[in-house]
Design a protein around this nucleic acid. Structure first.
Length: 585
DNA sequence: TCGGATGAGAGACCGAACTT
DNA sequence: TAAGTTCGGTCTCTCATCCG
């Protein structure tokens, strides 16, 4: 039996920021470097406490053939991570923040390996699950620290890294963009692994947070950040260090709940520099000979998604087909060609994939004739998973592609709600997106609230015969939501608080979002799907509060949005559907 | 703030118990 | 009884915010 291929993720780098540490990562492969000797003779002997691991790592460094396996470089972690022992080369090679342990953990080590790999300093061999030093990696290792030569190598390497070019492209026209602006247009933004927070809701939260103690606003600033937003921040940070981008605070005037406005800012905001424009011009080079070839990997076409192998392969073949074609291909043509390769997909899915490829930094022109590949890419390998292991599309992908078909008016970025709704890690984003959807697509007024002792959202209509308000709670849950008693009780408290509006009972007075003119109130739970006793709980809350409630699945939320947009459903109709049961449109 | 740090979820993996 | 299957715990990978 052949060993099973390990499936790794490349191209998206979360933690690393310091080029000094990138260089140490690369120099561990260069036996003539000081770092190599330091790590082998000092760092590993001192930091690796387990004798067997220590022996293995030193033997790996003394190996004649110059490669390291993923395990040797990155190692593993434990559940209490501060106590995770040092068990890998990169862990030992790089010092932790504050030098508390003297080494970094496996996740940051993984990040440095991904970084060196993305910039072309390391090459990956999937059969051996190992990394090798490349020629430019060696050149980088040998370059003098902080020299012009080193900078030239790094800029050249960044130019071959598609996401960096993507960031420069987004900034090309001189706009001052925040990490949120960039994050939502980066990679396969929106899907699991590429979360991006809506900037207006972030600003809203800042503007409505108390100014003292300052820790409240500071924690919003530092804690509210999706993965794609973070990728955008880190990549922009590298570009800033190379002088290709400048960082500067961006100011906003934000309306508050009370009706006044407040001045807020986002520090992670960026503009392109002249040097940056030059690099971009060269990356876009009209002639193939000038253009810097990009490094693209199958492993970067999806990260944390359910059907990772399937989706990556589909995207890889889509790109492959575009690369092979001298003329533009439209979605129907791509659909036919993909089918011949064994992928039965809707046009909308293909459209979404191409958008993701473009957002990852690959130049593809979108014209009325279709998609035209306009880039130079180094050859990349698409793993063969063979006939014994057919690529099967999972349930989630099926549901999503079905919705792509049904939703003609609702922006397809919202289809990701289906996935987010089942990922408890993405609870906050789920709250955000549901409120955003109800506001943008259904045209409700209101706010995302969040925080302790508040419902997730407060929404209301404006201009109906009888306007009504909705008290909203959301829950991202993998196996379906049964509406436990504790959550029903919490909702009952919110509904009562709103009925009574007593600042002594809840001093945060979240109900002030609603205009005084609104007298009719309803409560709503939104989740992936519902099961169990939810009806009983709805009836109980309704009885106690004298208000009507409902539960709503994301799928119905999306389909309802479609009907609102095509005019076959009104907000009055939606209001009438609150009958202590699940809403089906 | 910058540059990682953290606990957790999900699935891969692995040996023991169970089935056929 | 050998070989396959299931069970249940452990290990690995990868976040999505968190934070000193």
């Amino acid at each position: 039996m052949a060993t099973k291929r390990v499936v790794r993720t490349f191209g998206w780098i979360q933690n690393p920021g310091k080029f000094e540490n990138l260089k140490r990562t690369v120099q561990v492969f260069d036996e003539n470097s000081k770092v190599y000797k330091e790590v082998r003779d000092i760092k590993i002997p001192n930091l690796v406490k387990d004798k067997d691991v220590r022996t293995t790592l030193i033997a790996a460094m003394n190996r004649l053939e110059n490669y390291y396996s993923y395990k040797e470089l990155v190692g593993t972690g434990t559940s209490v991570r501060a106590q995770a022992p040092c068990d890998a080369i990169i862990q030992a090679a790089i010092q932790d923040q504050g030098n508390k342990k003297g080494y970094i953990d496996n996740w940051s080590s993984d990040g440095f390996v991904r970084w060196a790999h993305a910039l072309g300093f390391l090459e990956y061999n999937s059969d051996k699950d190992s990394f090798y030093l490349t020629d430019i990696g060696l050149e980088y290792s040998r370059s003098t620290d902080d020299s012009l030569n080193e900078k030239i190598i790094l800029i050249e390497a960044l130019s071959s890294y598609p996401p960096a070019i993507r960031i420069l492209t987004l900034l090309e026209n001189g706009e001052h963009l925040t990490k949120f602006d960039l994050g939502k247009q980066l990679g396969f933004s929106g899907e699991s692994g590429f979360t991006s927070l809506p900037q207006n809701l972030f600003l809203d939260a800042l503007a409505n947070a108390p100014s003292s103690p300052p820790t409240i606003k500071n924690s919003i600033r530092s804690d509210w950040e999706g993965s794609a937003d973070k990728y955008a921040r880190m990549i922009s940070g590298w570009l800033v260090k190379m002088g290709l981008v400048a960082q500067g605070r961006k100011n906003f005037v934000v309306p508050t709940v009370g009706g006044s406005t407040r001045n807020e800012y986002i520090s992670h905001a960026f503009k392109i520099t002249k040097d940056g424009l030059d690099v971009l011009r060269r990356a876009k080079g009209a002639s193939k000979h000038v253009r810097v070839p990009k490094r693209v990997y199958w492993e970067m076409f999806a990260t944390n998604i359910n059907d990772r192998v399937y989706v990556r392969t589909r995207r890889a073949y889509t790109l492959y087909l575009l690369m092979r074609s001298n003329t533009a291909l439209n979605t129907v043509q791509l659909q036919v060609k993909l089918k011949a390769l064994g992928f039965e997909e809707l046009e909308e899915t293909i459209e979404n994939d191409v958008k993701g490829l473009i957002n990852s930094g690959i130049f593809i022109n979108v014209t009325n004739k279709g998609y035209h590949f306009k880039d130079t890419i180094k050859p990349f390998e698409i793993p063969e998973f063979g006939v014994t292991e057919p690529l099967v599309k999972g349930e989630m992908e099926k549901k999503k592609s079905d919705l792509r078909h049904k939703l003609k008016h609702v922006p397809h970025e919202y289809i990701e709600l289906i996935e987010i709704a089942q990922d408890s890690k993405q609870n906050r984003l789920f709250e955000f997106k549901v409120v955003e959807f109800l506001k943008e697509v259904y045209d409700y007024n209101g706010k995302h609230l969040g925080g302790s002792r508040k419902p997730d959202g407060a929404l209301y209509t404006n201009g109906l015969k009888t306007d009504y308000g909705i008290i909203l709670d959301t829950k991202a849950y993998k196996d379906g939501y049964s509406l436990p008693i504790s959550q029903a009780d919490e909702m009952q408290r919110y509904v009562d608080e709103n009925n009574n509006r007593n600042a002594i009972i809840n001093p945060n007075e979240w109900w002030k979002v609603y205009p005084n003119s609104i007298l009719d109130f309803k409560f709503l739970f939104v989740s992936g799907f519902f099961k169990g006793d939810y009806k009983k709980q709805l009836a109980r809350v309704s009885n106690l509060t004298k208000r009507k409630g409902a539960v709503l699945s994301v799928e119905q939320l999306l389909l309802g949005g479609e009907k609102i947009k095509d005019g076959s459903l009104t907000l009055e109709d939606v209001g009438d559907k609150f009958n202590n049961d699940e809403i089906i449109f």
